[in-house]
Design a protein around this nucleic acid. Structure first.
Lengths: 241, 241
DNA sequence: GCAAAAGTGTTGGTCATACACCCATGC
DNA sequence: GCATGGGTGTATGACCAACACTTTTGC
């Protein structure tokens, strides 16, 4: 195996998770000082990402990075865009950072997004934190743009494929499912209509089990069956334009 | 401007066009001989593509390549996936080819697809030809896979956004529009239902003009209005899962 | 006058939307 | 016993799918 890094190609990961009705993103701190920790030259945030090894596939690099930062194996990953604008290096800080790392300032970044189930917890620290997507801190490079394109792409995916379940625990309630859709798409959904639609899907399988303790009235649990989904969803060509 | 090539990053273009009811793809010949033209070592086909310049954006490189090969400015371009498998170099020929070109055998390719209007003609020659997507010749590298992923992506796009018009001349008949959908999606569409739906869209604008000569009965012409489309299609969040 | 492509309407079923109250439990 | 989130039904309109014949022209 060839573990040398390719200096001008990086993989950046937009790691997403739902929490209390909003989309959250995992970021790492970018920190650089010259002489003294109290006067850093760079102190802001960036996406989790890294360079790739010479003998590594792009998606291998992405899942490796995901595992390094979260500790989990990913359940959903999507390569959505590659960024290669020579002006991705926005400013002095970005340039300084690439120099300090010895990487090519003209680098391209293959961007992935990952969905993390809400019952999988990560220990945050001063270098690794969740941020609400509507309250992002100062970000390095073009990472604000990368996040925004990831989110656009996710919304499209969520409306056409059953990826939302990757945000939820294996067993979930219909109200959790509804809230997940509402959070991601930033819309309100009528509860009765939603339940009708959801219970009508054969691949949203009711379990003989209730969740107790979380709310006053126990709530019925469901699971998503990929098998049933694959079997039933024969591609129907609907032109929605 | 820095016109040096970046040796390990390429842009590949899947250039698509509709012709007599099928999707066609523009390919260039890959030809290499050692001593004698009559005994080539390599003689197969690849996508139009090239390396990028150090000061060029990815989409600039892609549109430059499109223009070089077709002579036209593009009307629709989509970056759909980046390929970076170390095994993209399938065999002896691929390796030989990269050596003969002096490029890095571990290169990644940012892939775009382009749609060409059916009234824009390209002069074909022995090094540049259209091929039906269902009758592709022997292809170098992973280009068969790139084409297949491009086509998958196009089908999804066609069903959710008004990109089909980029295959048609500015003025088109409803039957041409229907045939375009049928060709791309490889389906049959009921003519009466289709016309009802199409004429119901405000952005498919009837013209006071008929096409004569092509068929016995003159046929009404229509145009697509992007303005009207943008104004009327307020994003409606329909969960189709 | 006939071949060839253009163009036209109705019906039944499915699915999305709008809308307001009762239920089971914890405290 | 009351606060909290869980859970339920009906009526209306929009849209999709199925289906066969007439119209206009070139030759």
């Amino acid at each position: 195996m060839d573990f040398r890094k390719i200096a001008n190609i990086a993989v950046d990961c937009v790691i997403l998770r739902l929490d209390s009705g909003t989309v959250n993103i995992l970021l790492t701190r970018r920190f650089l000082n010259m002489y003294n920790d109290r006067y850093p030259i760079i102190d802001d945030w960036v996406l989790t990402g890294n360079h790739i090894n010479r003998s590594e596939r792009l998606d291998e690099a992405a899942s490796r990075i995901f595992k390094e930062f979260t500790g989990f194996d990913h359940s959903y990953m999507e390569q959505f865009l590659t960024f290669g604008n020579p002006k991705r290096i926005k400013n002095e800080k970005d340039l300084l950072w690439t120099k300090s790392r010895g990487t090519d300032p003209r680098s391209i970044s293959v961007a992935y997004y990952f969905l993390l189930q809400s019952d999988k917890n990560i220990v945050e620290n001063s270098n690794l934190k969740w941020f609400r997507i509507d309250k992002l801190p100062e970000l390095g490079f073009d990472h604000k743009q990368i996040i925004s394109r990831a989110y656009d792409n996710l919304k499209l995916k969520v409306m056409s494929e059953p990826v939302i379940f990757n945000f939820l625990p294996d067993k979930f309630t219909l109200n959790e499912l509804q809230l997940a859709y509402e959070s991601v798409l930033d819309i309100d959904i009528d509860n009765r209509n939603f339940r009708k639609k959801a219970t009508g899907k054969s691949y949203i399988v009711p379990l003989d089990e209730k969740r107790v303790g979380e709310s006053k009235k126990p709530s019925k649990l469901y699971m998503f069956s990929k098998d049933v989904y694959d079997r039933t969803s024969a591609k129907n060509y609907v032109i929605n334009v």
